[in-house]
Design a protein around this nucleic acid. Structure first.
Lengths: 346, 346
DNA sequence: CTGAAAGCGCTTACAG
DNA sequence: CTGAAAGCGCTTACAG
């Protein structure tokens, strides 16, 4: 059943039927009611979305392009929270959320993504050119990474890392270590050697976090070069585990006593493995995270970390896409969370 | 730039240009190469997805309709894992994932959802009639709840619950308690009184879980009516917490020594709160979960639970939608996970 | 191997 | 307040 058929049955024009659904003010109430009633009877549930979309040029769909795989993103607490924020705003405005991965098997964004009215790009795509096929006229908003010609929602990673490292380093004396996330140019799941090339700050937010840590080292008169660093390739339990085991299994005198982790997932894995080894946190080992995910706060001991408000990030990005907020690059605040894995010094 | 404009510029028909993109066998390689080259030069990135969709009747989008809000679903480990499984299969076949909530503010599914080529319905919708506006000709697959006229992907909740309860009750003597999830007809976040009406097994999978527990009680000669039950309204830390505090704060002799929880989230909240109170798990308190989420397994002590393979659920549902698996109702296996929160009896 | 023509289901100026 | 007509951008038998 199409609008045209319905019009024929009612012996009126398609324009009037269309108006009955879209512009109540364009026809009499009586006629409109009759049309709507008849539509229901005949099983016509309103204008076809695709046809309407072709005609009006708007689909009421907003796409989120994720730099990581959908599987990773959906299972990552930070990405999930971000998506929640986006979904919440889209929902409230009758928009629908299309999830697209930038790591498609074909390394190309599926055509169907281009139906969206706007695009939110989360993370650093493996290949910028993927975006070229997307309709450039429509609004784009980036999250976490600058994308030329479009506003970005940022968190001040350097400042947040500086803050938490300063908090942690106030305990003296300690042997700090850094556990970073995708910081090396070439894949490395383990200790970072001195000659290893690192990604630039423009290529990964974890470099910004590193800079914050290093500024804190300097403030506390610690030579940044003396602080051992380990790198983790994927922010999941399974991938974190072997690297952290390697660290915790170091002989007592060499084992770090403070782990500055670049994500809560890393920190929580360290916490679990430390507990399994009978290490006391924070007495034997202090641990700090980054992100402020729920899992770190609803457990004992509570994780000391810095919270980035991913929900707010998502809400803001979605609001910008919908034109409810100005399209301008914005830096969101972070908040230090003083948990028990690295308590304030006495 | 449209296909028609491109055809005009090249002085060939639109049919040929269309074939260049869709049916390489319908024209000479030379002509096709020329068309593709010229398209790239002129910035034409292929046929418009909406127009193609209108014409062919297929959008290559698959919609997942979630009974819960998107915010809840995205932050729930079970739903996320399910979505991962769906996304994985859709991705591999060039399909894109549209997320739709059945708890929209307007209590109506947005029109744009009807663009999808197929629908996966997850959970029990607050209102079945919402689906009426969706194109009934296209494939539908339900997950966890039967939906008339469409195949469902199920887990045998009763059997899984029976298995884990039997495992737990083998420790004797104990004072078991059940912490259920949305089991009461009317909202209740706390102890379930004897006169409280429960939802039927067809209305909630947790009733099936309860039946499994009760069968185990009978096997162990425990009067089901003697086992206290608490109900939780939402499977989140925040909502679980007050209920579990109430339980753990019971005087020593009344406090249950075994908590049969209907989700891992409930069990993990119980574990955290027990740890905070200095209760020893499993010595003072045994805890079992349901779901088998990662968070319960990558912590110390590991959660004793029963795993439902949400990933497999999602994969199967998506495969059915894409016609890669027969459209038939299927029951997936579960697996007992013997963790440390309720170890096998010595 | 290529093209003319119909039509997918709508919405929207515009005329009456 | 209502309707005739154009056109959104494409694909697909079909004819040549």
């Amino acid at each position: 059943m199409t609008l045209k058929e319905l019009a024929t049955r009612l012996d009126i024009s398609t324009a009037t039927v269309s108006n009955a659904f879209n512009r109540p003010d364009q026809l009499s109430t009586a006629l409109r009611d009759r049309i709507l009633r008849e539509a229901k009877t005949l099983g016509y549930s309103g204008p076809d979305a695709t046809a309407r979309s072709l005609r009006t040029g708007r689909s009421r769909i907003v796409a989120v392009v994720l730099a990581e795989s959908l599987t990773y993103s959906l299972n990552d607490a930070v990405a999930s929270e971000l998506l929640s924020g986006i979904a919440e705003v889209l929902d409230a405005h009758g928009r629908t959320l299309l999830l697209v991965s930038g790591r498609q098997h074909a390394n190309r964004i599926p055509d169907s993504a281009s139906m969206a009215d706007g695009f939110i790009i989360y993370g650093l795509l493996p290949n910028r050119k993927m975006l070229a096929d997307l309709p450039s006229r429509r609004p784009f908003v980036a999250i976490d990474y600058d994308l030329e010609g479009c506003p970005t929602v940022h968190v001040n990673n350097e400042q947040a890392s500086y803050a938490i490292a300063c908090h942690a380093l106030a305990h003296l004396p300690q042997r700090p270590a850094v556990i970073s996330l995708r910081l090396t140019k070439h894949p490395c799941n383990g200790r970072i050697s001195a000659e290893q090339e690192l990604l630039a700050a423009s290529q990964t937010i974890t470099h910004c976090r590193l800079q914050g840590f290093q500024r804190a080292f300097e403030r506390y008169a610690i030579d940044p070069a003396s602080v051992p660093m380990w790198n983790i390739e994927e922010n999941t339990f399974a991938v974190c585990m072997p690297v952290i085991e390697e660290i915790l299994d170091l002989p007592e005198g060499q084992r770090p006593t403070l782990l500055l982790c670049m994500s809560d997932r890393i920190a929580l894995t360290a916490l679990t493995l430390a507990e399994q080894r009978g290490l006391r946190v924070p007495d034997d080992l202090c641990i700090t995270g980054f992100d402020g995910i729920a899992e770190g706060q609803y457990r004992a001991p509570r994780l000391t970390t810095v919270r980035q408000d991913s929900l707010a990030k998502g809400r803001l990005a979605a609001s910008m896409i919908l034109g409810k907020e100005p399209m301008t690059t914005t830096w969101l605040e972070t908040e230090l969370i003083l948990g028990a894995t690295c308590p304030p010094s006495a």
